[in-house]
Computed example of a mutant assay.
Amino acid sequence: MTAGQADALQRLWPLWGLDIDGQRVIELSELFGNSKPVVLEIGFGMGEATAQMAAADPDTNILAVDVHTPGQGNLLNLADRGGMDNVRVANGDAIILLREMLTPDSLDGLRVYFPDPWPKKRHHKRRLIQPEFLTLAATRLRPGALVHCATDWEPYAEQMLEVLSAHPDFENTQADGGFAPRPEFRPLTRFEGQGLDKGHVVNDLLFHRVPHQGR
């Protein structure tokens, strides 16, 4: 961790940090100090893309979750330098955050960019995008909320498409039921650029949370 990242963590964590402990339910309007829409981003690396999206869309709050301490410090530093008060950084397990700490229908979007692909077959069960995860996420997403995934690991992209398409709580935004073009609001990440340089194919998936049954 650089000195700048460590300094940002020390200064800004009390203001913009959230420890995921599963001990309390949080009101997102209190966490951000306003009632703007909130998007949950799971896994943000060093935070450059998150900071760019926060700067480009100040009317959307981003709750960004990761366990990588240098990345947490870097994102806090970028947000502070850019004057972006619409970013909060959470440390810990996103599953616990969703299950124990967020209220129903509290999120307007979910972003999962370049999650660990766990390429070995015996590790596939560790992949984040699974039916059980989507069922949990659906309880916290408002009807119409956008789920946006991106990966440069094609077998994982196929699995994501299959699992999301089969889930009754989500509907593909693409009429052909396939992958989506990269939307303008998602910046090209450094990691993505490295993958593209190696000839990897990046796939985006854009699904909406369908309205709750019986409403």
Rank of each mutant, 00 (worst) to 15 (best):
Y113H: 11
I42T: 01
I20L: 03
V38M: 00
E27Q: 12
V38N: 01
G82C: 06
V89W: 00
A90I: 09
D21K: 15
F114E: 01
L75H: 11
F32L: 05
T50F: 04
G92H: 11
I96M: 12
D19P: 05
E30S: 13
V67K: 15
D93N: 15
L63K: 01
D59S: 10
D80G: 11
L107Q: 10
V112H: 04
D80F: 14
R88Q: 04
N34Q: 03
F114A: 05
D93M: 08
V87F: 02
V65C: 00
R88K: 09
N61F: 10
G109K: 11
V87C: 07
Y113W: 15
R111H: 14
N61D: 10
P58D: 07
Q23G: 11
L28E: 04
V38W: 03
V112W: 01
G45K: 12
A94P: 07
G47H: 05
M46L: 10
G22V: 06
G47K: 07
V25M: 15
F114D: 04
K36Q: 12
L75P: 05
H68K: 08
S106G: 13
S29V: 11
A51V: 02
V112C: 04
K36M: 14
T69P: 07
A51N: 01
M46F: 05
G83L: 02
A56D: 00
N74P: 06
I42L: 00
